[in-house]
Design a protein around this nucleic acid. Structure first.
Lengths: 155, 155
DNA sequence: ATACTGAAGGTCAGTGTTGGTCAAAGTCAA
DNA sequence: TTGACTTTGACCAACACTGACCTTCAGTAT
């Protein structure tokens, strides 16, 4: 098997095993797989490009790293699945649980998590009858989640 | 964890716990965290720069100190001003106008702008009487904006 | 007042630790 | 043979850490 495929496979497995988010150290990985460090760059630029649904961030110096995030349609599909499962009404606590899980699995950022939570919190619905709250919350939540995945499409 | 991150974290926490104003003694802090004194300078010049919203003052000699002030308060004050001006109800179009201006002036990110807009859009309020919509919208909008400026304090 | 002394913080160049780039050379199938 | 893909290493850039040496300030002795 080609070296580049080995490296790609290794990274893909890391992504599979950690919800699409992997962080590696270039020299360490190169040493582990028995190749030169620049081979890692080659694999990343040829197989983990934005066009193929990946975001790559890195940092040099002591404690440096390369972080690869998978942002393919998986995410959009997963978010839409959740949107469809919400139904016509949802409680505040159920909404919070769903959002926490989404953040945990990197489907939404921490920032978005907090922001959406604040829009769904019972605190915001003082003047609305209990009956209407959950309906409204479901409507707003779905609206926001759909907006989020539309935003993604541009990156 | 990197030494520089440790130092930065320590200082950030001091700022969090004291309303954006922290005063340290270089040698004391270096000793406490187990690094050389110049490390403190390194962290300050690389992570607490004016560009990142900090003001640093210092004094040498006996009783010397380093004072670090976080000046993102400007933004907080501006956002709170807007929050206070919203009142008990707001129309969808008025909300959009305010958010556009805020994004224009970099008070909120484009991403947050779109996300908040989606939570305030009339589309999300189908089953609510016209009278209640604007009250609810104001409540949610204020909730989200306040959440946003609280989030700022951590980065 | 002046000079001295000790106690801070400031600077900077050197070294170490990572990751990035690129051109040259190798491989392999069409 | 040609052209696309792969591999490599020399050189580069960014970030982290350190210690020797310098400057500034307050208090104290003369």
């Amino acid at each position: 098997m080609k070296m580049s495929d080995l490296v790609a496979q290794y990274i893909s497995r890391m992504l599979d095993e950690s919800d699409g988010n992997a962080e590696i150290q270039r020299n360490e990985l190169a040493n582990l797989l028995g190749c030169v460090p620049s081979q890692i760059n080659y694999v990343i630029t040829s197989r983990f490009t934005p066009e193929q649904g990946y975001i790559v961030e890195s940092r040099r110096g002591g404690g440096g790293y390369i972080r690869i995030t998978r942002v393919t349609a998986d995410r959009r599909v997963a978010v839409m699945h959740i949107v469809n499962s919400i139904g016509e009404h949802i409680s505040s606590s159920a909404a919070q649980t769903i959002l926490s899980n989404m953040a945990e699995q990197n489907m939404i950022s921490h920032n978005d998590h907090i922001l959406i939570s604040s829009a769904l919190s019972d605190k915001a619905y003082k003047n609305i009858s209990q009956v209407q709250r959950d309906t409204l919350r479901a409507s707003i939540m779905k609206n926001m989640l759909i907006t989020l995945i539309l935003l993604d499409d541009r990156s």
